[in-house]
Design a protein around this nucleic acid. Structure first.
Lengths: 170, 170
DNA sequence: CAAGAGTACTTGACGAGTCAACGACCTGCG
DNA sequence: CGCAGGTCGTTGACTCGTCAAGTACTCTTG
């Protein structure tokens, strides 16, 4: 029953395997973390936004800056901030220098929520990522990730991401 | 680079940075690949399903096996196969030994679509992953990924390598 | 051999994101 | 000045996924 050997080999290329491994490892860790976040009535993207706000001067960022720093569109950020605002974790405040613009501002409740979530979250990162690797191995791993990140997301090192823009043949 | 870690640095922990790097690298590569797939009127999950079907004996798998091998629920698989079937890339066929069950069977059109997509896809994996790393570095990287994958997804090793023909287990 | 329990898939309702098309505002230039 | 053309954020319509419940079948067991 087995023929089409050449074709079959194309479908089982080692590059597919490598990418599959990358995917399984990342989505596996990611699922562990997401699972904890969900237990605190947040989704990953919301947690990430709260974290970025908490680290920004004044605890606030422009909607469009949030969109640039995450992998969401501005419309996605609008809806995400809607949800967080409904929950009292952020509020929208006017931007004095540009009346089109809005700040998303983390509230005390938002910071408190982060403080609830973070310690356990860091522990999970240790358990499912850091502690699995020898120190030297971890260094090599992070170095490889940095090379890849710099290649695929030029200018993202300081936190400014840009939507991938490549469109191919149609 | 570890300095005095005050409590407010909780929000800027090195573990957050490491996980952020993992996320940016993976989502970056993933976006490059997804972008190509979308150019061929598929989404990533559909491409993955076609690939798994093409490598399985008879070009078919049970719906529930597909769900187990991907990160979708059985209900997600139902709707994904609906779309592929509507496009003529797979068909549902009865399972003779269990009348509840269905096979998703890749069609010739489905295989042709894969053959269209794959060569360029493999090239992109080279460009945005493999070729970025020195051979030894790549080995270390894959080794680390394997450790992580084995920790977070016990029993998923068969993922992208060998077809698993094992229904009616337990 | 008939329940009862469990499995395989589908469906309805909904959540979370995208894109395209706004209205509101800002800026540069004739 | 005045307005053409960009940017900021929101909204409507849609896609792709989840969960919970439902239907149809299979397995176990007294």
């Amino acid at each position: 029953m087995s023929q089409n050997i050449a074709e079959t080999d194309l479908f089982a290329d080692h590059r597919i395997t490598a990418m599959g491994l990358f995917t399984e490892a990342f989505t596996g860790v990611s699922a562990k973390l997401a699972n904890q976040i969900v237990g605190h009535k947040l989704v990953m993207a919301e947690f990430e936004v709260l974290l970025r706000l908490s680290r920004s001067p004044g605890g606030r960022l422009r909607m469009s800056d949030l969109a640039a720093q995450t992998s969401l569109t501005t419309s996605g950020i609008t809806r995400l901030i809607d949800r967080l605002e409904r929950g009292g974790l952020v509020e929208r405040t006017a931007c004095p220098s540009d009346r089109r613009g809005l700040f998303a501002q983390i509230t005390d409740l938002g910071r408190a929520r982060l403080t609830d979530v973070l310690p356990e979250h860091l522990g999970l990162i240790d358990t499912w990522l850091i502690d699995l690797l020898e120190p030297a191995e971890l260094e090599g791993f992070l170095g490889a990730l940095r090379k890849i990140r710099d290649a695929v997301r030029p200018g993202a090192a300081a936190g400014t991401a840009e939507p991938v823009e490549d469109h191919h043949a149609k």
